[in-house]
Design a protein around this nucleic acid. Structure first.
Lengths: 243, 243
DNA sequence: TCTCGGTATGCTGTACGCAGTCGACGACAA
DNA sequence: TTGTCGTCGACTGCGTACAGCATACCGAGA
């Protein structure tokens, strides 16, 4: 063996344009530069990002499977309009998947895994104390991802990751709310996993995700409901004469 | 309103080529015309299906997110190789999702929904009695889909459908095994849903899916394990001279 | 004034072409 | 014979062009 295969991970591929475009558009959506319901014109995005329509098309399709945009055949892509109902259902599914993950993780996790969990937990707490919301959210995702990975069920982990990506969009704005409490729950969860107490791990995770859900719903309930513009294809006003 | 919006659903759009291609490739994979591990060359599929590479590319990407093919950047697409371990995990996830669906369905289903469940159940039993395996499997899928739909959680239903499609790939060859027993369990499940007994519905569904899982694993354990060819890019033998 | 049909326009869906890249194969050296 | 390097071929990734279609605009008729 040339080098230790551990930590070698993946060679940092010069990422395909498609992947870069996916991330760019996600960023644009999260940052609200692209508003919910907005019609995404391929050629505009292409020009904006400095690529051709092809990678943009593929990115939009990928994003539609992840729930970021809705694809209307023959009409194009529209930024997904997150409804309260859907967020609730999504968080419910996440709770289900992650609860099961926690249960399995408690049964399967080894010392190495627990160690990595603790590291992540420490990083998360540090991020919260530094008031770095973005880092806290990212670390939160990492920790949940690791729990699902430790479940030993790859299919479950992949599915949970898929759901988590969608949740993250909703989650970011309310992350500040929960702050430290969330990480105390994480710590308790890790304790349960380390002890191999599947029932307790599942219970903690269920409560944890329910708290997040409640927090989100509470936050959203207070928000004014924007009248979502009807998702019609936008039409550029005709330029009659522009000298 | 012009007509009752109920049942209007969507105008059956002349499905884009991409969607047709997705279904076609799924069919080719399920029917084993495309073998696990096989390198899928875009241009070949395009020619085979009579379209250009573009829709094929997009279809392959979609299929990769659903777990049918694996996409190796720079190398192309390979038919996913289903392992015994993965099948087990997939069935476990299905059990989880459908158990929850059954629980929710018992809480939410109305008389109309129960009626449709019973119809499907009758059709399934008829199919088994007629020894029509294909119809039985299809009806089985429909019934499970309806249960998830009746759960009222669209996200859950969609996820369950995705998992179910993959399960079907593994499951079809062994479907004959279970036969009538399976439909008796379905009937019991419907009774529980009608009674609004969430706990019992969940319990029955859990056992039902576990039976399916056990049946599958038993069947597969007996099978010879094909040595999966290394997923390398295939190379067409050079034609030196072919008159 | 409202409705209906024609027309124009911009966008999507698809096809095609080119360059970059990856793997295989073969030659050469140790 | 075995390891290494260079070359070649094929396929993917991306750019570009074109056709079809859906929508909005607009004028005519009721």
């Amino acid at each position: 063996m040339l080098v230790s295969d551990r930590a070698t991970a993946k060679i940092p591929r010069p990422a395909t344009l498609r992947e870069s475009v996916i991330e760019a558009i996600q960023e644009l959506i999260v940052s609200r530069q692209l508003k919910p319901g907005q019609h995404l014109v391929e050629s505009e995005l292409a020009e904006l990002l400095g690529v051709s329509r092809q990678p943009v098309r593929e990115a939009l399709q990928q994003l539609s499977t992840e729930g970021w945009v809705d694809l209307h055949p023959g009409q194009g892509a529209f930024v997904h309009v997150p409804t309260l109902e859907e967020a609730d259902q999504l968080l419910a599914v996440r709770a289900l998947l992650e609860t099961e993950s926690a249960r399995l993780a408690a049964q399967n996790a080894d010392a190495e895994g627990v160690k990595r969990l603790r590291e992540l937990c420490a990083r998360g707490i540090a991020a919260v104390e530094a008031d770095d919301v973005e880092a806290a959210v990212a670390t939160n995702s990492e920790l949940h991802a690791l729990v699902t990975a430790l479940s030993g069920n790859k299919v479950l982990a992949e599915l949970a990751a898929q759901v988590a990506r969608r949740v993250r969009w909703y989650h970011t704005p309310v992350a500040r709310q929960r702050g430290m409490t969330s990480w105390q729950e994480h710590a308790a969860l890790i304790d349960a996993i380390e002890a191999g107490d599947a029932a307790r791990a599942a219970q903690i995770m269920r409560e944890h995700t329910e708290h997040t859900r409640a927090s989100y719903m509470e936050q959203r309930a207070a928000e004014p409901v924007e009248p979502a513009p009807k998702p019609v294809r936008r039409r550029r006003p005709r330029v009659v004469s522009e000298s």
